[in-house]
Write a protein that binds this DNA or RNA. Structure first.
Length: 635
DNA sequence: CTTAGGG
DNA sequence: CCCTAAG
């Protein structure tokens, strides 16, 4: 079996690795496993080959063998990967299968399918490539059906595939991947459940071949710090995990050379390629509905990745692919799903390491099923010893290549790929296709501005947000909290920018442009957020914070329901405070926070009144209307 | 866990 | 924004 995977699918690699042996992922619309275009990938790639003899995986490097890391740029402005860059399989008979499954039983039914594969796209041979690509289009495999049946298929069998690959095209082997949990130093349970990791494929980016020393180097490259652990097995595992942490990988640069992972000093060329590659990505999602619930569709592998990394994340997001989790073969054992190590896990791993010199257990990040948002809570015996660790601006072995601190820096906030994805899956409320489309169409900042303007106009005209075009503020400089996110995230490999906006690390205050000090965790509310909040309240009523949070703030991993509540409280205060003065606009305040447009405040007040949130004396007007009526007006 | 309210 | 109490 051979699987090609293009570097641009690097985010897939982790996925891939976690899947190897089961090799599948799905999303609600992850219908297609289309051929990888190595050509476009720039000629780099990895080929994993299953050696039937050794019953093991080998990895081969195609092209320069440069493992192109994801640049944050890519993620910021473009798709993570082309949605066509997915896993693909080539059957014995040179047919390629597209995996297509939206079967509900997917996660349960799916069993690893080992395909006898041959090299898919020899990119030295374009003709072959095209040919196969064509063939691929029509070949689909329904995993649901495929699974059970393939159990019987023997290895030697090879049946032609015509148009529709049927069972015979694919075969499944016993999955040798499942091994009893090995004992290793400082394991976490998460790890245990994450079975199919690199260590299973001896390909393992060939960490196997590395000496302890090299492993240490790799470790450092991966995690940005050293380790004293000598246990090769452990090291490999850690590294694997680190690498598997997609975005983390992305920020680290490796060269795979002679089947060894090495640090790569020069990154530029790769990046540029990535950009080209991802250029058109957005259109891939165009027109997809954004209804936010079960139908939410994110493209293909992206969803997978998203899930991979935010498996515990935002519910709304998760619901996008609720039934398409990746299941591991061993269903008998409790149907455990395969999960990538959580950020927390990684963190813990790192920190357990830190213990070596700190002598203290540090971790206390609240990671939960509730989303990327994490908080440092004074729950256990935490020592603020994170401080010295936090700023690590290590560079790779003095090479000058900066390695983002994989485990700790990126806490509390979703990665930008996440954000990017979410961007095209905006809150459904009042959200308009138009807006979405617009976003898809070209991301013209100008037009976004226009939208914003329109919004304002509408607002002022009616004193009401008729169509709260909650802009996904990424593009607008003015209120771009998200853009800040993106930019900031995009600098993952660029430690400098870490200092401010983001990184909810230990530091409590952060210098602002104006010289003031701002709390680190403080995220000024953007207008769009406020609008969302208002809209949310209008729909669900004040008090249904979690609802609002889930629906309207699906994209905002920060902003807990409590935050919403607080903000609403403030809005209320503001709206009524401003009332008597009847100021045209909200000028007087020289608060650092953005001024809230009068119309919004108006609406806040309005809502407050209709929802009996007002002081009894203030709500004279109230009686006429039923709350439900009012609400229904917005539904 | 969610909501509400105080700090 | 944080924390906590209460359901």
């Amino acid at each position: 079996m051979e699987i090609s995977i293009c570097p641009q699918s690097r985010l897939l690699i982790p996925l891939f690795t976690s899947l190897l042996g089961l090799i599948i992922a799905a999303s609600s619309e992850c219908e297609n496993w289309e051929p990888l275009n190595i050509q476009r990938a720039g000629g780099y790639g990895l080929i994993w080959r299953f050696d039937p003899i050794k019953e093991d995986w080998d990895v081969e490097v195609v092209g320069d063998g440069i493992y192109i890391p994801a640049t944050d740029d890519d993620m910021k402005s473009e798709d993570l990967i082309d949605h066509k860059s997915s896993l693909h399989f080539v059957m014995d008979n040179s047919q390629t299968a597209i995996y297509s499954s939206n079967d509900d039983t997917f996660d349960q039914e799916f069993t690893p399918i080992y395909c006898e594969l041959e090299e898919l796209l020899k990119f030295e041979d374009p003709s072959t490539q095209g040919e196969r690509s064509d063939a691929i289009v029509d070949t689909t495999v329904d995993l649901g059906k495929l699974n059970p049946k393939f159990e019987e298929v023997t290895r030697s069998e090879s049946t032609p595939v015509d148009g529709h690959i049927d069972q015979s095209g694919v075969r499944k082997q016993a999955v040798p991947l499942l091994e009893p949990a090995e004992s290793e130093p400082s394991t976490s349970t998460v790890c245990a459940s994450w079975k199919p990791d690199f260590s299973m494929l001896k390909g393992e980016i060939c960490l196997d071949n590395l000496s302890v020393r090299e492993l240490h180097a790799t470790f450092k490259a991966t995690f940005g710090r050293e380790t004293s652990v000598k246990d090769k097995q452990w090291l490999k595992r850690r590294i694997s995990m680190g690498l598997s942490n997609s975005c983390d990988v992305s920020s680290t640069t490796f060269i795979i050379e002679n089947k060894k992972v090495k640090k790569k000093d020069n990154v530029e060329d790769c990046n540029s390629e990535d950009k080209n590659h991802n250029k058109d990505s957005f259109t891939g999602h165009e027109g997809r509905n954004v209804s936010g619930d079960n139908n939410t569709s994110v493209g293909d592998s992206q969803t997978i990745q998203m899930e991979g990394h935010y498996s515990g994340g935002n519910k709304t997001v998760q619901s996008a692919t609720p039934k398409h989790h990746i299941a591991f073969e061993d269903d008998n054992q409790g149907n455990k799903r395969v999960r990538k190590p959580t950020r927390r896990y990684i963190e813990e791993v790192s920190e357990s390491d830190s213990r070596e010199y700190s002598g203290r257990l540090v971790s206390s990040v609240k990671s939960s099923g509730n989303g990327p948002r994490t908080r440092v809570r004074p729950v256990h015996n935490i020592q603020p010893i994170r401080k010295p660790l936090a700023t690590r601006q290590d560079s790779l072995g003095g090479s000058g290549v900066e390695i983002p601190y994989v485990s700790r820096i990126r806490r509390g906030r979703p990665r930008e790929n996440f954000m990017t994805l979410m961007k095209f899956q905006p809150c459904e409320m009042g959200m308009t296709e138009r807006l979405v489309k617009k976003a898809h169409d070209g991301h013209d900042p100008q037009s976004d501005d226009e939208i914003e303007n329109q919004e304002h106009k509408a607002t002022t005209a009616t004193g009401w947000l008729q169509h709260p075009l909650i802009k996904e503020s990424g593009e607008n400089e003015q209120y771009s909290e998200q853009s800040a996110d993106l930019n900031n995230n995009s600098d993952d490999g660029n430690m400098n920018s870490y200092a401010d906006v983001d990184s909810d690390d230990n530091i409590l205050t952060v210098p602002t442009a104006k010289g003031g000090m701002r709390r680190k965790h403080h995220r000024p509310w953007t207008l769009s957020e406020v609008a969302k909040l208002v809209e949310g309240v209008s729909r669900y009523g004040a008090g249904r914070w979690s609802e609002i949070k889930r629906i309207a703030f699906a994209t905002c991993s920060h902003r807990t329901s409590v935050d919403l509540k607080d903000k609403w409280r403030n809005l209320l205060r503001a709206s009524f405070a401003q009332l008597p003065a009847e100021k045209g606009v909200q000028n007087s305040k020289k608060h650092s926070s953005i001024p809230i447009p009068a119309p919004i405040l108006l609406r806040v007040r309005e809502l407050a009144e209709t929802q009996s949130q007002v002081n009894p004396d203030l709500k004279a007007v109230k009686f006429g209307s039923n709350i439900n009526d009012i609400r229904s007006g917005f539904l």
